[in-house]
Amino acid sequence: MMNVWSKIKKDRIAVSCLAIILMIIIVGIFANFFAPNDPLEINATLKFDGPSWEYPLGNDQLGRCMLSRLIFGIRTSVLFVLVAMFATISIGTILGIIAGYFKGKVDEVIMRVCDIVLSFPSEVMTLAIVGMFGTGLKNILLACILMKWAWFARVFRSAVMKYTDKNYVMFSKASGCKTGHILRKHILPAIFPEIAVMASNNISSQILMVSGLSFLGLGVQAPTPEWGMMLSEAKDAMLIHPYQMLPSGIAIMVMAVSFSFLGDSIRDAMDVKHEGYALKKNRFKRKRLAA
């Protein structure tokens, strides 16, 4: 784990992605402090105005401050997704560890439930849940949690299984350590990088999905600022004010790119075989062959 962290520290892209993500999260949490204006304040006369000192990114179709909406939109578009992801991971990790560590009947039951959940494509089930229970961010996030935990549970189960046979775990067990202690001190840290990779990649797809559904009008209620909905509002005036499409679109992109780059870098750092090392070895071989 320390090893992974020190490798990531050396990767400039990973560090800058992490910095961007942290910065955006902080700005989102303290949106009240960072936003220059009230995101809901309507100035009908400033409709579609370009950037100015008072409104650094201009005004939207109702004359609201775009920058402030973008900043407050972090909460709905990123923070809520993060919270949902945290819930998903918690459920997935707990069930995965239980299944992988205790095995037997519990494992069987949890895995069969996972199979059932995984047999439904998550996009479809999200739509189904939104369709049955009504539109809204709450239902979308609920659907995400319901559909995604199984992925995590399954991956963590096999990760746990890999480690329960490791000598140091066996040793702790034999020396009479409590199960909770073993799970906390040995298993969880061992599978942590895997959690990080999955979470990071999933968050970026989740952000895209939530904003996509909001774009279709299935997400948040107006006038709550949300990036997908801001885009969908902007697209109606796209022909006359194409600029309106940019801020929220770029925001979504930056967020998604940062999370996937980060996930990638953690994977690279963890998995020596995949890219870096294997490539070097290969290049060396090729050179040798050429010579």
């Binding site: 996509g212 774009f215 997908g228 969908s232 679109g249």
Partner: peptide
């Protein structure tokens, strides 16, 4: 990498 991180509805529009 970047393209796949862009919202499809955005590129589409």
């Amino acid at each position: 990498f970047i393209i796949s991180a862009m919202p499809a509805f955005w590129i589409g529009t």
